[in-house]
Design a protein around this nucleic acid. Structure first.
Lengths: 343, 343
DNA sequence: CTGAAAGCGCTTACAG
DNA sequence: CTGAAAGCGCTTACAG
């Protein structure tokens, strides 16, 4: 059935081969392929048998040429730093999206727009219609790529609230503020009063929202706010270490630290150990993310779980809905306190 | 210039629009697009101006339909375990390949064949010609996907030596055996004599080759081999910890451990600390990979650097060559000893 | 060097 | 329910 091309690789069967095998027209085969509407049971049966027999697989290029859809989606990373790749959250997200898309038989194109040149090339590629939509992962605000894609009306869903133009862009995020509240309430409940925090960068939602949640709880608990207890990190382990060292110098009486990411919390634990403070006896430490590494610290890290599997499946769901014509939407997912040894 | 479609999104300009704008035929535009052969300078000039003016971007589906190429490449992960995503090496490799391909304007499709169902679906997709070639990342031997793709004559290059059918499959790998030798020689030179090793799984090249390198050096140094000094891990941190505990029990006099991955070495360091052994004073520890985490251990990990950036760029180079008709080939890249505190 | 024309494999109104 | 036909946007021999 399958013809052999000049290069030795088999030429795959076409819809024409299937039609001949089934004794119907190509149109009928196509109708079976596209949902089986307006096809008699007998014809459908014959076509399906012919498909099995020939091993036919639709040629997506031909289909895309006529439908105008590409049946593929981009996973776009716009990140000047290399950091996202070190971040375990990134892995989970990427895998989750790949698999959620695979369930719809949609391939994921991975694109990294690190430099200005890459951003221009990728924007051109996407706006030329080579993908049906974009899963956008970009931690910082004021991302020009997001704005350009939005202007070109490319279906788009961001991971985390895009600080610049949130009102017109779909996004899926964990409830950062509430997660932070959970953790700080837990610290308060365990008797801590001098609670410090190491924040993320303040131009990211994880930076501002988790800090806001921290302040919410101090206010509701009637604990006086002390700005010396607030240090700003950049999500790296090293920044956690240096922030903790600085906090220990400024406020040696602190008895707890809420750290806005597990990776930074690892650095905080190192700094505390170096300073001879016991965790959690002298200082309780709470992280954020529930990354795999949270299990490997000594003591194991009490942290806030971000539901990455749900975040990725919701991103895919919202994007496909938008590709299907629905309006933009926002999904906020609940977090969960995971108690381990550090707090 | 650009027409507006029914859904509100602009219909991108076609080769026809460019031809009209430039005052030439569509054939001439196509020739300019495909290398500019048999085109007069004047025509080429006019076409390029028209392309700029219209913002034309080639429709890859139409092109692929006729050329039979897809101008895209799959990055295929066949891994029953989730482990690869936790492995920092995976990140570096994926990023490296994405960027090396971007330099050729070729998008990377990420595919994960974890379950049997996924493997079947993905094999069908790939053998149907939807990608021009495959970058294969699969740690274990006897991978049925590799064999099927090879049989279907799909251009393919593996990361690491595929233990099953290495002779007919291109691959790029670090020199595992020589890297292991470097590390163990370093341990011997620093006066260690009771040198243990924690290997990777013995159905992976990193497992067998690094063990072979370890044995090479013991033999050349005239140190008696002692099988009690060999423990087999599975590349996880936890296995490093349990292997080290077992080694301490079997051979309490050991004065060094060569560990086949940095992640396992982290577990080894924990176990040694728990046992009250000082590193490197009592026991020297050498890792393999030079992962980012190797900088974060106490003491920092002496390790063997795998040249991941070169591995990824070579994988892409070899794959593109093969797509272009060249024969299979093998690339072995040198490793490098990175001395830090642990040995 | 250039244009007219065929054709890649598919989908989708259009008649029946 | 079904077939014949047009056409998606491009590339590539084929004449000139």
């Amino acid at each position: 059935m399958s013809r052999t091309g000049s290069n030795g690789r088999r030429k795959p069967p076409t819809i024409h081969d299937v039609a001949r095998e089934a004794g119907v027209s190509r149109g009928t085969v196509s109708r079976v392929l596209n949902g089986g509407h307006y096809v008699s049971p007998a014809a459908e049966e014959a076509v399906n048998a012919a498909i099995r027999k020939t091993g036919y697989v639709v040629n997506r290029h031909a289909r895309s040429l006529i439908t105008g859809r590409s049946d593929s989606v981009a996973f776009l990373l716009t990140e000047p730093q290399e950091r996202f790749f070190e971040d375990p959250n990134f892995n989970v997200l990427l895998r989750g999206c790949t698999q959620a898309l695979a369930d719809h038989d949609i391939p994921l194109l991975l694109m990294i727009a690190g430099t200005k040149d890459e951003r221009r090339r990728i924007t051109r590629y996407i706006t030329a219609g080579h993908v049906d939509g974009v899963l956008l992962v970009s931690s910082h605000s004021g991302d020009p790529v997001a704005e350009q894609l939005r202007a070109a009306r490319v279906p788009l869903v961001a991971c985390g609230k895009p600080l610049g133009q949130s009102s017109r862009v779909s996004y899926v995020a964990a409830d950062d503020r509430d997660g932070a509240r959970e953790m700080v309430r837990h610290l308060v409940r365990s008797g801590r009063r001098r609670i410090a925090t190491v924040t993320g960068p303040l131009d990211t939602p994880g930076g501002t929202e988790r800090l806001a949640g921290y302040r919410d709880v101090l206010a509701e608990a009637g604990i006086e706010a002390d700005e010396r207890l607030v240090a700003t990190g950049d999500y790296s382990r090293a920044s956690g270490e240096s922030c903790a060292a600085e906090l220990l110098r400024r406020t040696p009486d602190m008895d707890a630290v809420f750290v806005a990411s597990d990776l930074m919390a690892q650095g905080v634990l190192s700094a505390l150990r170096d300073a001879g403070r016991r965790v959690p006896d002298d200082v309780a430490v709470g992280g954020f993310d529930d990354s795999p590494a949270a299990l490997d610290t000594r003591p194991a890290l009490t942290t806030i779980r971000q539901p990455w599997d749900r975040i990725s499946s919701e991103m895919v769901r919202v994007l496909l809905a938008q590709i299907g014509g629905e309006d933009t939407s926002t999904v906020i997912l609940p977090t969960e306190l995971v108690r381990r040894g550090s707090a």
